[in-house]
Simulated scan of single mutants.
Amino acid sequence: MKILVLNSGSSSIKFQLIEMPSEKLLCNGLLERIGEQDAIINYHSNSADEKRTEPIESYNEGLQKMMDLLLDTQKGVIQSLDEIEAVGHRVVHGGNSFSDTVLLTDEVKKEIEKYCALAPLHNPNNLEGILVAEKLIPKAKQVAVFDTAFHQTVPKHAKTYAIPKELTEKEEIQLYGFHGISHKYVSEKARAYLGEKSDKIITIHLGNGCSMTAIQNGISIDHSLGFGPANGLIMGTRSGDIDHTIIFHLVNELGYELEEVNTLLTKKSGMLGLTGFSDLREISERAEKGDADCLLALKMNAYRIKKYIGSYTAAMNGLDAIVFTAGIGENSVIIRELVCEELEYLGIHLDKKANSKRVDELREINTENAKVKALVIPTNEEIEIAKQSFLMMNVER
């Protein structure tokens, strides 16, 4: 069974065409910087490798370019889109409506749309991907896999906000958590690797969006993102944790409209607001050359992560391992080093030589005698989505 997996991020589309149940990768690709004139298209199959830069104005345009690559007579891997039996979609916010993978129906799409206001950088793009895929691949089953589902296990005392009960109970304002597909995937890899010493793990997903999860005995017990995917860690364009009185100050004293504040905190803040750049590669290069703003931003980013490591270690009454994953977590030597330094009291001792190696596989970056393992585990949300989509297809049959 060929399953196309679509993972639409806040400014990117990852895709993989996977043969299930063998998990054989037929092709994969990444479209980055969507909405910009210098968008990047990466595509790989057994017969072709391609990287090019060109304008991609919208997700609709990006998805169409992706379909063209799949069908290309020289580079493609299928002759007809009818060969694809299922399309698995990553959907960021499912609220309390979904605790598991589901087939997409009109009702499900309405629920996804309902949560667009809570995940404005993601759910609209997820929904657009669904609608385009339905149009371009009408014979395939469309499956939704939710980032929020993994965090349904977070206990009430951790997910409830200290606001009036009618808001938490009637309006369901609570911590939902995100990046659950990634946190689930890498935590299972970590537990398989660590064996018995895997009860208390902190997974650190660092990309354009960033989050951390405290995972005890394989389940999520706390998470850094909350009602929407905007709080917690410092991200590419999102501020992360902020004193909410700043919002009232911006509106009441500085004359901002609420929509302007929302745009400011989700699209103009974070690393972009601190440095003028959202790409950590550019920021790191400038920091190495002595750029004061970029140096400060890196230190702030790492400091916020360290605070969450401390709080989650306390919540779990101990720590067996931390896991770095996603684009920045897997590739940024400097962020991992800044995060791990001066955490010896927790049992975290970084091996700088191991940390500097760039290997695309699970590896330890801790010293041999470290009490707590520090792991780098490449995430593969697409394989996890394909697994869940395949299981759903079998249930339907």
Rank of each mutant, 00 (worst) to 15 (best):
L167G: 07
K289H: 11
D199G: 13
G35Y: 01
V186T: 10
I34C: 02
L121G: 03
T325I: 06
T160D: 04
S220W: 04
A48D: 10
N96S: 08
G318D: 03
T160F: 05
G9V: 02
I377Q: 13
E381Y: 07
R33P: 02
S58E: 07
I56R: 05
S284N: 10
E61Q: 12
G62V: 02
L206C: 06
K268S: 09
R397D: 14
Q64W: 05
A370E: 09
G347F: 07
A326S: 09
K267W: 04
K373F: 01
E111M: 07
P164G: 09
I181P: 08
Q74K: 15
A117V: 12
Q142A: 10
M67C: 14
E36G: 01
Y312F: 15
V261P: 02
L375Y: 07
S10E: 04
G94D: 11
L69K: 13
L338W: 03
D241G: 09
K189H: 00
G95P: 12
T203R: 04
C294F: 08
N60C: 02
N42C: 13
I112E: 02
V154G: 01
Y185Q: 11
N60R: 11
E134M: 00
K139Y: 00
Q152V: 12
G276A: 10
R238S: 01
F146Q: 10
H157T: 09
C116D: 13
L362I: 12
V395T: 14
I215E: 12
E188N: 14
N208C: 05
D38T: 15
P120Y: 02
A297G: 01
L206T: 04
C340K: 02
M316V: 10
D72M: 10
N252H: 09
R281S: 03
E260R: 00
Y345R: 12
P124H: 07
A386D: 13
T379A: 15
E396Y: 09
I163Q: 06
E337G: 07
S389Y: 09
N394I: 07
K307S: 13
S239L: 06
R358D: 13
R281A: 03
E111K: 14
K110I: 10
G76Q: 01
E188D: 14
F390P: 10
A302T: 02
A354H: 05
K307D: 10
V143H: 08
G88A: 08
D100H: 11
M67H: 08
E259F: 07
A374L: 11
E23N: 11
T153P: 11
I247M: 11
D82V: 05
E257T: 13
C340A: 15
A119N: 09
E341V: 12
E85N: 13
N331W: 02
Q37F: 07
N126L: 00
N126R: 00
G218V: 07
L264H: 03
L295A: 01
A302M: 06
S356K: 14
V333W: 10
F324K: 00
G347Y: 08
A326N: 04
S239R: 02
I322S: 01
V154M: 05
K109S: 12
C340L: 05
N331S: 13
A149D: 08
